[in-house]
């Protein structure tokens, strides 16, 4: 109201009605042809559980924001929105694995979202980018890896990589700064329960704090290193 001629940016209502600090989480999901069948089904159900778990927590429902980018080809399945209004999509598997292009798209999306928060005067936590893949990039990925390295160093985001059966863990290791995790026996649900729990913790933590997350790579956890 300082200036009545200020334009109303798109999304103004969203931030006015819910000015809680945001903790953005971008799911970067491999939906290439090799995910067909059980994996994509489990993944879809995992996302539904993710939504349910987050919305069950009244604070996380207002703070955690979810966006989904799938590949290939790189597609924005849903834009960032808080967990209470997020609608899980039904993902279909086909195409190849242009992981490099998808990662760059994700990095841009996160950058764009942070700018929107800043313009709206909304505080935010360090964004999470969560890559899940069952293959190896079919495109040029070195520049994406370089950008992840820079981003992690400057604290612009945290990038996590999870490999499903068949994923090339060597390349994942080169892409992500953090140790990539390998999903045990298609345990997508456990992964998403863990992710929602982590988001809940993050949304209650001090922004920019060391992540208070449970190690998933325990004997009972969903991952191995």
């Amino acid at each position: 109201m300082t200036d009545n001629f200020d334009q109303i940016p798109f999304g103004a209502a969203e931030f006015a009605e819910n000015p809680e600090p945001r903790c953005p989480c971008l799911l970067l999901l491999d939906t290439s042809g090799s995910m067909r069948g059980n994996p994509i089904k489990e993944l879809n159900e995992g996302i539904i559980i993710f939504k349910d778990e987050l919305s069950a927590d009244s604070l996380a429902a207002k703070r955690a924001e979810v966006s989904i980018i799938t590949f290939g080809p790189p597609t924005i399945e849903c834009e960032f929105q808080t967990a209470d209004s997020f609608q899980p999509p039904q993902l279909q598997a086909n195409g190849d694995t242009p992981m490099g292009a998808a990662i760059e798209m994700a990095l841009n999306k996160v950058q764009e979202r942070k700018l929107a928060y800043r313009q709206a005067g909304i505080a935010y936590y360090r964004p999470w980018i969560f890559l899940i893949t069952d293959g190896a990039p079919t495109d040029y990925w070195k520049s994406a890896a370089q950008k992840i390295k820079l981003g992690e160093e400057s604290g612009a985001f945290s990038f996590f990589a999870v490999g499903v059966d068949g994923a090339n863990m060597d390349i994942l290791q080169q892409i992500a700064v953090r140790q990539p995790l390998k999903l045990k026996n298609m345990r997508f649900r456990d992964l998403f329960v863990w992710l929602s729990k982590s988001m809940k913790n993050v949304s209650r933590s001090k922004p920019g704090d060391k992540l208070a997350i449970e190690n998933p790579a325990t004997p009972t956890g969903w991952a191995t290193l």
């Binding site: 109201m1 300082t2 200020d6 109303i8 940016p9 103004a12 931030f15 006015a16 000015p19 313009q119 709206a120 005067g121 909304i122």
Partner: peptide, 8 residues
């Protein structure tokens, strides 16, 4: 600057 769409 205070955020847009807030009261003075």
């Amino acid at each position: 600057r205070q955020p847009p769409n807030t009261l003075p």
